[in-house]
Amino acid sequence: MSDEDFEPKIIAFLCNWCSYAGADLAGVSREQYPANILNIKVMCSSRVSPEHVLRSFKKGADGVLIAGCHPGDCHYINGNYKTIRKADLMKKIMEDFGIKPTRLRLEWISSAEGGKFARVMEEMTEEVKEIGPLNLDGTSLEDDTDE
């Protein structure tokens, strides 16, 4: 696959109260953005485990977005602070595992920021396109060439 044709697959975990609503607003405002991103709704960004992020990459995602309420605005008071810290550790671990930390992106998108949601989707798709495919799907140990 040439880089030109590369269409990255991105999983986006959106918190119910801010970012999912922001994504809806982008729709209501008919903002257009690339179709590369698949949203998974969680109640709070802090629900997202590092395991979900690693699993996404392992299963073939080229990028993962975690989006939540702006710090201080968390519907659950302080969930997004946990998310900041988890994402920070995650990025360090990803780097050790030879995965570019920039493939994981943390964004604060409020329910009023439909435009920002669309922009983040666009930027992230572009950025991941530039980084290139990660392609971990199918490189589990089973397929690892030993012989």
């Binding site: 729709g27 209501v28 008919r30 257009q32 953005y33 690339p34 179709a35 949203n39």
Partner: peptide, 14 residues
């Protein structure tokens, strides 16, 4: 499955 706000409305050109 949200296929309007997060799909048809935002990818209406494709």
């Amino acid at each position: 499955a949200n296929i309007r706000e997060q799909c048809s409305w935002v990818h209406s050109d494709d």
